[in-house]
Design a protein around this nucleic acid. Sequence first.
DNA 1: ATTAGGG
DNA 2: CCCTAAT
Length: 451
Amino acid sequence: MLVMGTMFKLEAIALPMFLYLFFPSVILVIFCDPWLGGLDSFNTPGEDDLKLEIMIYQVLDGLLDDVDEVDDIHAAHDLSSVCEDFLLDIEFTEQVTKLDCGAIKGPHLGNSSSESHSPGLSGSSNVAIGISDSTTTTVPESECKNDSLTKMITCELHSISKSECECEVPIEDNEAPSSPDVLKFDELDNDDNCLLSSILSKCKKRAKSSSLGTKVKRSRKPTQRYIEEFSDQKSRSVLDGQKVSAPALKDKRLKVKSCNESSNHCSTQVPSASRLRGGCLKKRAPVTGFESDDDLDASESDDDHVRKKKTKVDVDRRKHQRMWTLSEVMKLIDGIAQYGVGRWTDIKRLLFPSSAHRTPIDLRDKWRNLLRASCAQKKNKKEVEQKHVVRTLPKPVLCRILELATIHPYPRVHNSKTSCDNNIASPKLPAKAKGAQPSSRGRNVRTKRHT
DNA sequence: ATTAGGG
DNA sequence: CCCTAAT
C-alpha cells in the first residue's frame, strides 16, 4: 500500500510538473478550464455551495471524530476508510478541487510557513490525478499520517502538485487538535474560506460535545446512572441522538449520501443525547409492578398521575425521581418508629421489601426531607404557609413526623424543631400527641444501635 | 456494605 | 436523587 501510494504520488507530482515545465499555458488551459468551468456549468452556484458544504462537513466530521480518539490506534483505519469512502465520490473531488486552491491552501501557508505554490497549477493537477487514483492514494496517506504527521504535512505542503486527499488529510489533522486554528480561516477573505471555517467550527463543536458524553475518554467516569441510562436508552434513542447532535447537517448528509459514518455517530452520541432526553426511564413496566406489589395500592394512581405531570419538567436532572406517596411515607414513619432512625436497611428490608426503587438511602433522604418539611411547616404553621407543605403532609402524618423527630433526632437536620417532650421511648407509638412545640432539645440520643 | 452529609 | 467520604 505504502509503496503504491508513493508511486502514485510521484507520478502525480512528476507528470504535471513535467507538463507544466514544457507547456505551462497549455496545461493551465487544458486542466483548469474544462474542470472549473465545466463544474460551474454543471451545478448551479447555490447548489454547488450546498453540496460543497455537505461534502466538507462529511469529511471533517469523520476526521474530527477520529482525531478525537487519539489514543485509539485503530483510528487510522477508520480514518482511511472514511476518507477513501469519501473520495470515491467524484462530486466531492471536483468540489474540493475547486475550493482547494484558495481555501485549503491558505491555511497551509499560514500554518507551516511554507512557500508559495501556484494555486492554479496545484489545483489543476489535483483534478488530473486526484480523481484517477484518489482512492489508492488515500489509504497510505492516512496510515502514514499517524506515524509522522507533521512530516507528511510539510512534505505535502511543499510538493507543488498533490491530490486533494493529500491536501485534505493533513489539514484536518493540523486543524482538529488545535482549536484556535479556526481563526485563521476566518481571517481569510475568500468566501469559500468563510464557508469552510464555519463548517469547521460546527464540526468541532459537535465533535467536542459528542466526545464529552459518549466515549467517556475524558474526565468523567461512567457513573452507575450513566451506565444504566445508556443501556436503557441505547436502543430507543438512536433517532434522538441524531436529532440532538446535528439536526440539520445530519439530515443533509444523510440525504446526500448514506455513509457508514452516520451509524457510527449515532452509536457514540447516544449517551449524550440520553442525558438531554426528555423521556422518562422509570415508566417501565416493572415499576408499576413494584408499586402495586408493594402496597402503594391506592396511592399508585396518584403516584402515576404525579409522575406523568413531572416527566417533562425535571426528568432531565433526576432520572429516577419517584414521588413519595402518602402510604410510602406512612410506612417509612412506621418503620422509623419501629427500628429507629438510622437503620435504613432494616426499614427498607422490612417495610419496602418489594419496591426495587426506594433504597435505604432513599428512605433516609426522604426522612430527612420530611423532617425538614415538618420543621418548616411548624415554623410557618400559623402563617398560611400551608401551601405546598400540607399538600403532601396531612396533619396526622406531620404530627407523627414531628414526634419521631423528637424521639430520634436525625443528625443535624432537626435543629429548629426538636420538640418538647423528651423521651417518648415507645417505638411505634400512637400516632398522636401532637402539639409538639419547639422548645428544648431534650431527646434521648439513641442514635443507632447496631445489630 | 451502610450510613452520614452535601449537592 | 445522586455522589462521596467515613465507618
